Simulated assay, not measured.
Amino acid sequence: MSASLSDLIPNPLKQINFSLYFWGQGISLIGSWIQSAALSWLVYKITLSTSALGLLTFSAQVPMAIFTLFGGNVADTFQKKSILYVTQTAFTFVALLMFFATIENASFWYFIALTSISGFIAAFDMPTRQAFVVELVDDKRDLPQAIALNSGMFNAARVIGPTIAGFLVAFFGEAICFLINAISFLAVLTSLFFIKTKKGENLTSEVKADFKAAYNFTVSNKEILISICLLSMGGFLGISYMVLLPAIAKLILHTGVQGYGLLMGSSGIGSLVAALFLGTRKDTSNLINVIKRFSLLLSISLIGIAIFQNFISCSIFLFLAGFSLISLAITTNTLIQVKTPNNIRGKMMSIYSLSFIGLSPFGALLIGFLSNSIGIEPTLIICGSILFLADILVMKV
Protein backbone atom coordinates (compact mmCIF):
# COMPACT_ATOMS: atom_id res chain seq x y z
CA MET A 1 0.00 0.00 0.00
CA SER A 2 2.86 2.38 0.84
CA ALA A 3 4.33 1.74 -2.59
CA SER A 4 1.05 2.64 -4.28
CA LEU A 5 0.78 5.83 -2.21
CA SER A 6 4.32 6.72 -3.21
CA ASP A 7 3.38 6.27 -6.85
CA LEU A 8 0.70 8.93 -6.44
CA ILE A 9 3.28 11.54 -5.43
CA PRO A 10 4.72 13.32 -8.50
CA ASN A 11 8.43 12.61 -8.95
CA PRO A 12 9.58 16.25 -8.52
CA LEU A 13 7.95 16.37 -5.05
CA LYS A 14 10.04 13.37 -3.98
CA GLN A 15 13.14 15.52 -4.46
CA ILE A 16 13.98 17.57 -1.36
CA ASN A 17 15.09 20.77 -3.09
CA PHE A 18 12.03 21.02 -5.31
CA SER A 19 9.71 20.05 -2.47
CA LEU A 20 11.13 22.75 -0.15
CA TYR A 21 10.79 25.38 -2.85
CA PHE A 22 7.29 24.20 -3.81
CA TRP A 23 5.79 24.51 -0.32
CA GLY A 24 7.66 27.69 0.66
CA GLN A 25 6.74 29.47 -2.54
CA GLY A 26 3.17 28.19 -2.26
CA ILE A 27 2.63 29.84 1.14
CA SER A 28 4.20 33.06 -0.08
CA LEU A 29 2.06 33.13 -3.22
CA ILE A 30 -1.14 32.80 -1.21
CA GLY A 31 -0.08 35.99 0.56
CA SER A 32 0.70 37.66 -2.76
CA TRP A 33 -2.73 36.84 -4.18
CA ILE A 34 -4.41 38.05 -0.99
CA GLN A 35 -2.60 41.36 -1.53
CA SER A 36 -3.38 41.51 -5.25
CA ALA A 37 -7.11 41.04 -4.75
CA ALA A 38 -7.23 43.52 -1.86
CA LEU A 39 -5.24 46.13 -3.81
CA SER A 40 -7.51 45.99 -6.87
CA TRP A 41 -10.58 46.29 -4.68
CA LEU A 42 -9.04 49.17 -2.70
CA VAL A 43 -8.12 51.09 -5.86
CA TYR A 44 -11.60 50.67 -7.32
CA LYS A 45 -13.15 51.72 -3.99
CA ILE A 46 -10.98 54.86 -3.90
CA THR A 47 -11.47 55.87 -7.54
CA LEU A 48 -14.65 54.11 -8.82
CA SER A 49 -12.84 54.04 -12.18
CA THR A 50 -11.99 51.16 -14.52
CA SER A 51 -9.31 53.44 -15.99
CA ALA A 52 -7.64 53.40 -12.57
CA LEU A 53 -7.69 49.59 -12.60
CA GLY A 54 -6.01 49.64 -16.00
CA LEU A 55 -3.44 52.13 -14.74
CA LEU A 56 -2.76 49.91 -11.70
CA THR A 57 -1.94 46.95 -13.96
CA PHE A 58 0.04 49.23 -16.27
CA SER A 59 2.18 50.53 -13.39
CA ALA A 60 2.99 47.00 -12.25
CA GLN A 61 3.87 45.57 -15.61
CA VAL A 62 5.67 48.36 -17.49
CA PRO A 63 8.76 48.07 -15.25
CA MET A 64 8.65 44.30 -15.78
CA ALA A 65 8.46 44.75 -19.54
CA ILE A 66 11.36 47.23 -19.56
CA PHE A 67 13.74 45.37 -17.25
CA THR A 68 12.86 41.68 -17.64
CA LEU A 69 15.41 41.07 -20.41
CA PHE A 70 18.09 42.52 -18.15
CA GLY A 71 16.67 40.35 -15.36
CA GLY A 72 17.14 37.26 -17.51
CA ASN A 73 20.75 38.21 -18.15
CA VAL A 74 21.29 38.62 -14.39
CA ALA A 75 19.72 35.16 -13.84
CA ASP A 76 22.25 33.64 -16.25
CA THR A 77 25.18 35.46 -14.65
CA PHE A 78 24.67 35.20 -10.88
CA GLN A 79 23.52 32.56 -8.44
CA LYS A 80 19.74 32.25 -8.80
CA LYS A 81 19.29 31.44 -5.12
CA SER A 82 21.07 34.65 -4.12
CA ILE A 83 18.96 36.71 -6.52
CA LEU A 84 15.79 35.26 -5.02
CA TYR A 85 16.94 36.15 -1.51
CA VAL A 86 17.18 39.78 -2.61
CA THR A 87 13.92 39.93 -4.58
CA GLN A 88 11.80 38.16 -1.97
CA THR A 89 13.15 40.40 0.80
CA ALA A 90 12.41 43.48 -1.32
CA PHE A 91 8.83 42.28 -1.89
CA THR A 92 8.45 41.99 1.89
CA PHE A 93 9.31 45.65 2.42
CA VAL A 94 6.94 46.78 -0.36
CA ALA A 95 4.07 44.84 1.27
CA LEU A 96 4.84 46.50 4.62
CA LEU A 97 4.80 49.94 2.99
CA MET A 98 1.39 49.16 1.47
CA PHE A 99 0.17 48.13 4.93
CA PHE A 100 1.22 51.46 6.45
CA ALA A 101 -0.07 53.40 3.42
CA THR A 102 -3.52 51.86 3.84
CA ILE A 103 -3.62 52.68 7.56
CA GLU A 104 -2.67 56.29 6.77
CA ASN A 105 -5.27 56.54 3.97
CA ALA A 106 -2.60 57.33 1.38
CA SER A 107 -3.63 58.56 -2.04
CA PHE A 108 -4.17 56.38 -5.10
CA TRP A 109 -0.84 57.59 -6.58
CA TYR A 110 1.12 56.28 -3.60
CA PHE A 111 -0.15 52.76 -4.39
CA ILE A 112 0.72 53.26 -8.05
CA ALA A 113 4.30 54.12 -7.04
CA LEU A 114 4.61 51.05 -4.79
CA THR A 115 3.12 48.84 -7.51
CA SER A 116 5.72 50.17 -9.95
CA ILE A 117 8.49 49.26 -7.50
CA SER A 118 7.02 45.75 -7.22
CA GLY A 119 7.05 45.49 -11.02
CA PHE A 120 10.72 46.44 -11.11
CA ILE A 121 11.55 43.75 -8.53
CA ALA A 122 9.47 41.20 -10.44
CA ALA A 123 11.53 41.86 -13.59
CA PHE A 124 14.43 40.12 -11.83
CA ASP A 125 12.38 37.70 -9.76
CA MET A 126 10.24 36.14 -12.49
CA PRO A 127 12.88 34.92 -14.99
CA THR A 128 15.06 33.78 -12.08
CA ARG A 129 12.26 31.72 -10.52
CA GLN A 130 11.37 30.18 -13.89
CA ALA A 131 14.97 29.17 -14.59
CA PHE A 132 15.63 28.08 -10.97
CA VAL A 133 13.08 25.26 -11.26
CA VAL A 134 15.39 23.44 -13.68
CA GLU A 135 18.17 23.37 -11.07
CA LEU A 136 15.88 21.82 -8.48
CA VAL A 137 15.00 18.75 -10.58
CA ASP A 138 17.53 15.92 -10.60
CA ASP A 139 16.05 14.00 -13.53
CA LYS A 140 15.35 16.33 -16.45
CA ARG A 141 12.66 13.90 -17.68
CA ASP A 142 10.62 15.19 -14.73
CA LEU A 143 10.92 18.78 -15.95
CA PRO A 144 7.47 19.05 -17.65
CA GLN A 145 5.87 17.76 -14.45
CA ALA A 146 7.90 20.18 -12.34
CA ILE A 147 6.86 23.13 -14.53
CA ALA A 148 3.20 22.12 -14.29
CA LEU A 149 3.45 21.62 -10.51
CA ASN A 150 5.11 25.02 -10.16
CA SER A 151 2.25 26.58 -12.09
CA GLY A 152 -0.27 24.49 -10.17
CA MET A 153 1.09 25.86 -6.92
CA PHE A 154 0.81 29.39 -8.34
CA ASN A 155 -2.80 28.85 -9.35
CA ALA A 156 -3.81 27.05 -6.17
CA ALA A 157 -2.68 30.22 -4.42
CA ARG A 158 -4.72 32.18 -6.96
CA VAL A 159 -7.82 30.28 -5.83
CA ILE A 160 -7.13 30.42 -2.09
CA GLY A 161 -5.73 33.96 -1.84
CA PRO A 162 -8.59 36.04 -3.34
CA THR A 163 -11.20 33.97 -1.51
CA ILE A 164 -9.47 34.69 1.80
CA ALA A 165 -9.00 38.33 0.77
CA GLY A 166 -12.72 38.76 0.13
CA PHE A 167 -13.59 37.81 3.69
CA LEU A 168 -10.62 39.63 5.26
CA VAL A 169 -11.54 42.88 3.50
CA ALA A 170 -15.21 42.48 4.44
CA PHE A 171 -14.49 41.96 8.15
CA PHE A 172 -11.13 43.67 8.80
CA GLY A 173 -10.39 45.97 5.85
CA GLU A 174 -7.64 45.97 3.21
CA ALA A 175 -4.64 46.75 5.45
CA ILE A 176 -4.51 43.31 7.10
CA CYS A 177 -4.11 41.71 3.65
CA PHE A 178 -0.87 43.60 3.02
CA LEU A 179 0.50 42.63 6.44
CA ILE A 180 -0.30 38.95 5.86
CA ASN A 181 1.52 39.09 2.53
CA ALA A 182 4.62 40.58 4.17
CA ILE A 183 4.67 37.79 6.78
CA SER A 184 4.13 35.10 4.11
CA PHE A 185 7.49 35.87 2.48
CA LEU A 186 9.19 34.31 5.50
CA ALA A 187 8.10 30.91 4.17
CA VAL A 188 9.93 31.20 0.85
CA LEU A 189 12.99 32.80 2.47
CA THR A 190 13.17 29.88 4.92
CA SER A 191 12.86 27.32 2.12
CA LEU A 192 15.67 29.02 0.18
CA PHE A 193 17.90 28.78 3.26
CA PHE A 194 17.51 24.98 3.36
CA ILE A 195 17.79 24.38 -0.40
CA LYS A 196 21.26 23.06 -1.28
CA THR A 197 22.53 23.75 -4.77
CA LYS A 198 26.07 23.42 -6.01
CA LYS A 199 27.83 26.76 -6.09
CA GLY A 200 28.21 27.96 -9.62
CA GLU A 201 26.27 25.11 -11.19
CA ASN A 202 24.22 27.51 -13.26
CA LEU A 203 27.28 29.38 -14.52
CA THR A 204 28.59 27.58 -17.58
CA SER A 205 31.50 28.47 -19.83
CA GLU A 206 28.88 29.56 -22.37
CA VAL A 207 27.19 32.01 -20.04
CA LYS A 208 28.40 35.03 -22.00
CA ALA A 209 26.02 34.23 -24.84
CA ASP A 210 24.20 37.51 -25.51
CA PHE A 211 20.56 38.22 -26.27
CA LYS A 212 21.27 38.04 -29.98
CA ALA A 213 21.80 34.29 -29.52
CA ALA A 214 18.48 33.98 -27.68
CA TYR A 215 16.73 36.11 -30.31
CA ASN A 216 18.18 34.07 -33.18
CA PHE A 217 17.17 30.87 -31.42
CA THR A 218 13.60 32.19 -31.04
CA VAL A 219 13.05 33.33 -34.62
CA SER A 220 14.71 30.24 -36.10
CA ASN A 221 12.40 27.88 -34.21
CA LYS A 222 8.95 28.07 -35.81
CA GLU A 223 7.10 26.42 -32.91
CA ILE A 224 8.63 28.70 -30.27
CA LEU A 225 8.00 31.79 -32.41
CA ILE A 226 4.31 30.93 -32.95
CA SER A 227 3.78 30.07 -29.28
CA ILE A 228 5.36 33.35 -28.13
CA CYS A 229 3.20 35.32 -30.58
CA LEU A 230 0.04 33.66 -29.23
CA LEU A 231 1.14 34.20 -25.65
CA SER A 232 1.76 37.88 -26.43
CA MET A 233 -1.77 38.19 -27.79
CA GLY A 234 -3.06 36.50 -24.65
CA GLY A 235 -1.07 38.94 -22.53
CA PHE A 236 -2.36 41.94 -24.48
CA LEU A 237 -6.06 41.02 -24.82
CA GLY A 238 -6.62 37.91 -22.71
CA ILE A 239 -5.98 39.71 -19.42
CA SER A 240 -8.96 42.01 -20.03
CA TYR A 241 -11.24 39.95 -17.78
CA MET A 242 -8.71 40.17 -14.92
CA VAL A 243 -8.30 43.94 -15.23
CA LEU A 244 -12.05 44.58 -15.28
CA LEU A 245 -13.11 41.98 -12.70
CA PRO A 246 -13.76 44.40 -9.78
CA ALA A 247 -16.00 46.47 -12.08
CA ILE A 248 -17.69 43.35 -13.49
CA ALA A 249 -18.48 42.23 -9.93
CA LYS A 250 -19.84 45.59 -8.80
CA LEU A 251 -21.50 47.10 -11.88
CA ILE A 252 -22.70 44.08 -13.87
CA LEU A 253 -23.25 41.33 -11.29
CA HIS A 254 -24.07 43.75 -8.42
CA THR A 255 -22.09 41.79 -5.85
CA GLY A 256 -19.81 42.86 -3.03
CA VAL A 257 -16.22 42.08 -2.12
CA GLN A 258 -17.05 38.46 -1.13
CA GLY A 259 -18.59 37.88 -4.57
CA TYR A 260 -15.55 39.47 -6.18
CA GLY A 261 -13.32 37.08 -4.25
CA LEU A 262 -15.41 34.11 -5.42
CA LEU A 263 -15.23 35.29 -9.04
CA MET A 264 -11.44 35.54 -8.79
CA GLY A 265 -11.52 32.09 -7.22
CA SER A 266 -13.48 30.72 -10.21
CA SER A 267 -10.77 31.89 -12.57
CA GLY A 268 -8.13 30.54 -10.20
CA ILE A 269 -9.81 27.13 -10.02
CA GLY A 270 -9.74 26.98 -13.81
CA SER A 271 -6.03 27.78 -13.74
CA LEU A 272 -5.41 25.16 -11.06
CA VAL A 273 -7.30 22.48 -12.98
CA ALA A 274 -5.20 23.36 -16.04
CA ALA A 275 -1.97 22.97 -14.06
CA LEU A 276 -3.07 19.63 -12.57
CA PHE A 277 -4.22 18.39 -15.97
CA LEU A 278 -0.96 19.37 -17.66
CA GLY A 279 0.98 17.94 -14.71
CA THR A 280 -0.12 14.46 -15.76
CA ARG A 281 1.06 15.03 -19.34
CA LYS A 282 4.53 13.64 -19.99
CA ASP A 283 4.36 13.73 -23.77
CA THR A 284 6.11 16.86 -25.04
CA SER A 285 5.43 16.22 -28.73
CA ASN A 286 2.98 18.32 -30.76
CA LEU A 287 2.77 21.02 -28.06
CA ILE A 288 2.24 23.77 -30.63
CA ASN A 289 -1.20 22.42 -31.65
CA VAL A 290 -2.20 22.24 -28.00
CA ILE A 291 -1.15 25.89 -27.58
CA LYS A 292 -3.29 26.95 -30.55
CA ARG A 293 -6.40 25.26 -29.11
CA PHE A 294 -5.96 26.85 -25.69
CA SER A 295 -5.65 30.30 -27.26
CA LEU A 296 -8.89 29.72 -29.20
CA LEU A 297 -10.72 28.68 -26.03
CA LEU A 298 -9.53 31.86 -24.30
CA SER A 299 -11.05 34.07 -27.00
CA ILE A 300 -14.42 32.28 -26.73
CA SER A 301 -14.37 32.62 -22.93
CA LEU A 302 -13.92 36.41 -23.09
CA ILE A 303 -16.97 36.76 -25.33
CA GLY A 304 -18.95 34.46 -23.01
CA ILE A 305 -18.16 36.61 -19.95
CA ALA A 306 -19.58 39.64 -21.77
CA ILE A 307 -22.74 37.98 -23.11
CA PHE A 308 -23.95 35.85 -20.19
CA GLN A 309 -24.46 38.31 -17.35
CA ASN A 310 -25.35 36.32 -14.27
CA PHE A 311 -23.12 35.13 -11.45
CA ILE A 312 -23.15 31.40 -12.30
CA SER A 313 -22.59 31.84 -16.05
CA CYS A 314 -19.88 34.40 -15.45
CA SER A 315 -18.17 32.03 -12.99
CA ILE A 316 -18.20 29.26 -15.60
CA PHE A 317 -16.65 31.43 -18.30
CA LEU A 318 -14.13 32.81 -15.80
CA PHE A 319 -13.21 29.19 -15.04
CA LEU A 320 -12.69 28.55 -18.77
CA ALA A 321 -10.72 31.80 -19.18
CA GLY A 322 -8.44 30.88 -16.27
CA PHE A 323 -8.04 27.33 -17.60
CA SER A 324 -7.16 28.42 -21.14
CA LEU A 325 -4.90 31.37 -20.26
CA ILE A 326 -2.76 29.38 -17.83
CA SER A 327 -2.74 26.32 -20.10
CA LEU A 328 -1.42 28.58 -22.86
CA ALA A 329 1.28 29.93 -20.52
CA ILE A 330 2.29 26.53 -19.06
CA THR A 331 2.45 24.77 -22.42
CA THR A 332 4.50 27.59 -23.93
CA ASN A 333 6.82 27.48 -20.92
CA THR A 334 7.23 23.71 -21.31
CA LEU A 335 7.91 24.00 -25.04
CA ILE A 336 10.61 26.62 -24.45
CA GLN A 337 12.23 24.80 -21.50
CA VAL A 338 12.39 21.50 -23.40
CA LYS A 339 13.97 23.03 -26.51
CA THR A 340 16.31 25.62 -24.92
CA PRO A 341 20.03 25.01 -24.25
CA ASN A 342 21.22 25.77 -20.71
CA ASN A 343 23.46 28.72 -21.57
CA ILE A 344 20.53 30.87 -22.75
CA ARG A 345 17.81 29.47 -20.48
CA GLY A 346 17.56 32.58 -18.27
CA LYS A 347 17.40 34.81 -21.35
CA MET A 348 14.72 32.62 -22.94
CA MET A 349 12.73 32.74 -19.71
CA SER A 350 12.93 36.52 -19.78
CA ILE A 351 11.71 36.47 -23.40
CA TYR A 352 8.89 34.17 -22.26
CA SER A 353 8.04 36.56 -19.40
CA LEU A 354 8.26 39.56 -21.73
CA SER A 355 5.94 37.93 -24.27
CA PHE A 356 3.35 37.44 -21.54
CA ILE A 357 3.72 40.78 -19.78
CA GLY A 358 5.42 43.02 -22.36
CA LEU A 359 2.20 44.03 -24.09
CA SER A 360 -0.14 43.45 -21.14
CA PRO A 361 0.45 46.85 -19.44
CA PHE A 362 -0.50 48.62 -22.66
CA GLY A 363 -3.42 46.22 -23.05
CA ALA A 364 -4.52 46.94 -19.49
CA LEU A 365 -4.31 50.70 -20.04
CA LEU A 366 -6.22 50.47 -23.33
CA ILE A 367 -8.83 48.14 -21.84
CA GLY A 368 -9.35 50.42 -18.83
CA PHE A 369 -9.89 53.56 -20.91
CA LEU A 370 -11.90 51.72 -23.60
CA SER A 371 -14.29 50.25 -21.03
CA ASN A 372 -14.77 53.72 -19.54
CA SER A 373 -15.71 55.02 -23.00
CA ILE A 374 -17.86 52.25 -24.52
CA GLY A 375 -18.65 49.97 -21.56
CA ILE A 376 -17.31 46.76 -20.08
CA GLU A 377 -19.27 44.29 -22.23
CA PRO A 378 -18.32 45.78 -25.65
CA THR A 379 -14.68 45.92 -24.54
CA LEU A 380 -14.64 42.21 -23.66
CA ILE A 381 -16.35 41.31 -26.96
CA ILE A 382 -13.82 43.34 -28.96
CA CYS A 383 -10.88 41.71 -27.13
CA GLY A 384 -12.31 38.21 -27.59
CA SER A 385 -13.12 38.78 -31.28
CA ILE A 386 -9.65 40.11 -32.17
CA LEU A 387 -8.02 37.21 -30.35
CA PHE A 388 -10.37 34.77 -32.11
CA LEU A 389 -9.45 36.13 -35.56
CA ALA A 390 -5.74 35.94 -34.71
CA ASP A 391 -6.17 32.31 -33.61
CA ILE A 392 -7.93 31.39 -36.85
CA LEU A 393 -5.07 32.90 -38.87
CA VAL A 394 -2.43 31.05 -36.83
CA MET A 395 -4.32 27.76 -37.17
CA LYS A 396 -3.50 27.86 -40.89
CA VAL A 397 0.25 28.23 -40.28
Rank of each mutant, 00 (worst) to 15 (best):
F185N: 01
F319R: 02
I30N: 07
T92N: 02
W109A: 12
Q145N: 14
I344Y: 02
L298A: 11
K222T: 14
T115I: 10
N155P: 01
Q309W: 10
V188P: 02
L143G: 05
S315N: 03
L230G: 03
M395T: 00
K208S: 12
A209V: 00
F319S: 01
P10G: 11
P63D: 00
N343Y: 15
R293N: 09
A306H: 05
I381C: 06
D283K: 13
E206A: 13
I288A: 09
S49Y: 01
F120P: 01
T50A: 12
D283C: 09
F211N: 12
F277H: 09
S355I: 04
V133F: 02
P144M: 06
S82M: 11
L335F: 06
Q88A: 05
I381L: 08
I16G: 00
D7N: 13
L393S: 12
F99K: 08
I66K: 07
Q79R: 13
S324E: 07
A165D: 06
T128W: 03
S267V: 01
K45R: 13
F120E: 03
K208I: 00
S19A: 13
L203M: 12
K347C: 02
V338F: 08
F217W: 05
I121W: 02
T128G: 08
T340C: 07
A38P: 07
L297R: 00
G265Y: 02
L42S: 11
N181L: 03
L231R: 03
E104Q: 13
I83C: 04
A214C: 04
A65D: 02
S191P: 10
I176A: 08
G152T: 09
S285K: 14
T204V: 05
L298S: 09
L244P: 01
N372C: 00
I83D: 02
A249P: 01
S19T: 10
R141I: 07
F172R: 05
Q337P: 00
F217E: 01
A60F: 11
A364Q: 03
L189M: 13
S301V: 08
T92L: 14
F308W: 11
G256T: 09
I381T: 08
I176D: 06
P361Q: 11
F18E: 03
A157F: 09
M64H: 07
K222G: 06
G304A: 12
A249W: 00
M98S: 11
S350K: 09
L359S: 03
I83G: 00
V74I: 15
Y352Q: 07
A156N: 04
S36T: 13
F100C: 05
L253R: 10
A90N: 06
Y110W: 11
L276M: 14
G375D: 06
T89F: 15
A187G: 11
G304H: 04
T334E: 04
P12V: 09
A65T: 04
V207E: 08
G173E: 09
A65S: 12
G235V: 02
A390E: 07
F124R: 01
R281C: 10
L320D: 04
F67K: 06
G54A: 05
P378R: 09
T280M: 13
T340R: 03
G384E: 09
V243T: 15
F362S: 02
L29P: 00
T204W: 00
T92I: 11
V169C: 03
S295Q: 10
P162E: 08
I66V: 15
T115S: 12
Y215G: 00
N105K: 14
